[in-house]
Amino acid sequence: MSRLDECFKSLQLSHQKALIPFITAGDPNADFTLSCMHQMVDAGASMIELGVPFSDPMADGEVIQQASERALANGMSLKGVIDIVKSFRKTNQKTPVILMGYLNPIEFMGYEVFSKAASEAGVDGVLTVDIPPEESADLIEAYARYDIAPIFLLSPTSNESRIKKVSAVAKGYIYYVSLKGVTGAGHLELEHVEQKIRQIKQLTSLPIAVGFGVKNADIAAKIAKIGDGVVVGSALINCITDYVGDERQGQQAISDLLNDMRNAMDSAIQ
């Protein structure tokens, strides 16, 4: 069983939901990202989404755009992100790591080369924002050869036929985008999220993680009641920018927020 499947299974056994922090790799530098990954696990993260910075992050709001720009300015690259995962795996073989980014860096590295390198480094899944299932056949084939789960998005505007199309090729989990907008945007309407997740659940047995607009422990707890996982990104990156120049404080703020979310999520479903 893959690390991802095992993780969701053991969460289910302990009556917990997945807490999935997202940070942009290399923001502000690779060492910070690596030590932050370990700390996030200690603070209750079930798995980690690592953002691969890209020059043109079309689906991201300002917070993650700027994180990408900082990471690229510091020399981060797709290869650099894979190296971070490799280092992380030296002491952690248990926590799933998912890369999240855009297609072009993978195109330039080559599907085969990327899949092999990512798999050997210990990457469990890859979410590529700008490739829908229709264009994914070659990429999914490459992932399959190296046991990498292709993670896909569904959104409030995904109708039944799209849900089926995505479910047919997705592995690991489905990332449900909770609102119409970009990462870190506005406010999400729980009622709509709940309705949509109920619809998706009828069409797939994959776990559903919910992200975009999860700003605090209160929202995380409410999402935990309706989905299988909660993704938090922009709110964590804000912790980094709140303490520019003081990485320890930034990391502490991330740990505190995740701790709060973990506790709130656990008590919400007990």
Binding site: S55, L72, F108, M109, I131
Partner: peptide, 22 residues
């Protein structure tokens, strides 16, 4: 340039070796 994916389509692009648009 060389082919890659940007703004919704695959086409020739100007990018660095890592695929970042220049």
């Amino acid at each position: 340039g060389k082919p890659g994916v940007l703004h919704g389509n695959r086409t020739y692009l100007m990018a660095d070796v890592n695929g970042e648009i220049i």
